[in-house]
């Protein structure tokens, strides 16, 4: 049993360690706390894998654990920005790091800041979209309908549209995600 868990854990690590690190660094700006959260997610995943029966894909399991642990971590935090629903946000919030120069980097910083200010389900959808997950997969991970996921991603795309030129080709940064 322990061997099977370790095997699953290693497989999850091979596939999703960077995505989990990015999630932790997105919801926690402080590097030390982000590292703590990352380990908390690893620990929760390790413990949960004893219950994994293959009823869903390993990816779905890992993302659910990671996002729920991250959301609980944020909920425990005493201080933080006030949460504003996605439909009430008019533009991307200012990034925490004003020194950032590269345009895309700046937008990514502002997206991360947006994620920190969103209610947890909105934030979970946006992070999964940034990871390149399809609406169907995001719906399975979060429990929302595909329609609800699409609405949220559309709102973020609208927010982002003012920061990019019109898409010229299939290189568009927001293209192809929700076909």
């Amino acid at each position: 049993m322990e061997d099977a868990i370790e095997q699953l854990y290693r497989e999850a690590g091979r596939q999703f360690a960077p995505a989990i690190a990015r999630l932790a660094r997105t919801v926690e700006r402080d590097a030390d706390r982000a590292r703590d959260l990352e380990q908390e997610i690893h620990c929760a995943l390790w413990t949960s894998l004893a219950r994994f029966r293959g009823d869903c894909a390993l990816k779905t399991w890992v993302y659910r654990v990671a996002h729920n642990v991250a959301a609980d971590h944020v909920a425990r935090a005493v201080r933080g920005p006030a949460r504003v629903p996605l439909e009430e946000i008019g533009e991307l919030p200012g990034a925490a790091n004003p020194e950032t120069e590269a345009a895309e980097r700046l937008v990514l910083d502002r997206l991360a800041e947006l994620v920190r200010r969103l209610p947890r389900l909105d934030a979970q959808v946006i992070v999964l979209w940034l990871e390149g997950e399809r609406a169907r997969d995001i719906a399975e991970i979060t429990g929302l309908s595909e329609g609800a996921v699409n609405v949220r991603v559309y709102r973020v795309k609208t927010l982002l549209s003012s920061h990019f030129d019109e898409p010229k080709s299939d290189e568009s940064p927001t293209e192809g995600v929700l076909s």
Binding site: A17, H42, E104, L130, G132, E133, G176, S179
Partner: peptide
């Protein structure tokens, strides 16, 4: 999974790894 909307987003933390199973079991 499709192509991520922002390649820079998914390029970050590319070297991240899971905590060693022995350490995580102890934790």
């Amino acid at each position: 999974m499709t192509r991520p909307p922002f390649p820079q987003w998914t390029a970050a933390a590319g070297d991240a790894a899971f905590t060693d199973p022995a350490r995580i079991a102890a934790r």
